[in-house]
Amino acid sequence: MTTLTLGKALNEGLRKAMDDDPKVLIMGEDVGKLGGVFRITDGLQKDFGEERVIDTPLAESGIVGTAIGLALRGYRPVVEIQFDGFVFPAVDQIITQLAKMRMRSLGKVELPVVVRIPCGGGIGAVEHHSESPEVYFTHTAGLRVVACSNPADAYSMIQQSIASPDPVVFFEPKRRYWDKADVDTETADWTPLHAARVVRPGDDVTVLSYGPAVKTCLEAAVAAGEEGRSVEVIDLRSLNPLDIETVTASVHRTGRCVVVHEAAVFSGYGAELAARITERCFYRLEAPVLRVGGFSTPYPPSRIEDHYLPDLDRILDAVDRTFGW
């Protein structure tokens, strides 16, 4: 076991993937010499050379398009998008090309491209730098979408994503980059990439989350525990495909469910979860599936973003309300 920050765990995971497979390349703005804005690729260019860790021009669409071309010829490019909001210029390539090439070639080509996106708020950086754009991608068939929430998952999930034969949009919780935890870098006996995980068992209510909000949910569960409520927290880890079995098994037991994410609630990922849980657990539910998340506004100014991001109070309020229905 080694204690690593989430950022360093990603760095180590990328390093391992590059060691294991010479076809793995890293591309992005300032990923080489600078090591990336968040230093996720720190030192990799020095060790693997400029041909494998490529500093690109500022051209997100061009970067993803080039990565697709590389993948078509057998490489496994890992693209870093510097900030969540910067992925929008690349959305064209991701949706119209990356997600469609397998279909277009009738399965003859694989697109093992990973698009890494630091996401979410909490760093006081307003729009472009604090966004949660996951549903634009979960809505697009052909993409796999995952979100890590802790160092151990960061280490394993980035390697699993790189090994995936399909394109993976990989969300990294940027305000958790500096969180530390033990990571077993010796084993490869990992939870499957697309499996959810019960990160805190409980009996009274199921809280579903992913990415940066998982930690907040765990804190809320502790607080609820002190008030005598047993909250089960599930880290979904994978948004597409969704591990609905783990989710429904839990909700069948608890009869209550709250979904928490940073993205706006309206048309958010929680809507999909609420619909599916309702379909599968209708007669077991004691209350409707409630959602806690961002509001339908542009990402707010730094001084009031704490009101926008789901916090303990809002999560616990929703938990309480599932008991008052």
């Binding site: 409630l290 806690v292 509001f295 339908s296 506004t297 009031i304 809002r314 309020d317």
Partner: peptide, 27 residues
Amino acid sequence: PDVSTLFDYTYATPVAGEQRRLPADPV
């Protein structure tokens, strides 16, 4: 900025319904 201004600049006219004020959000 006051948190009550959160919705002031999203739409020109008030938008009814859950997008604006969510029952889950006590604030």
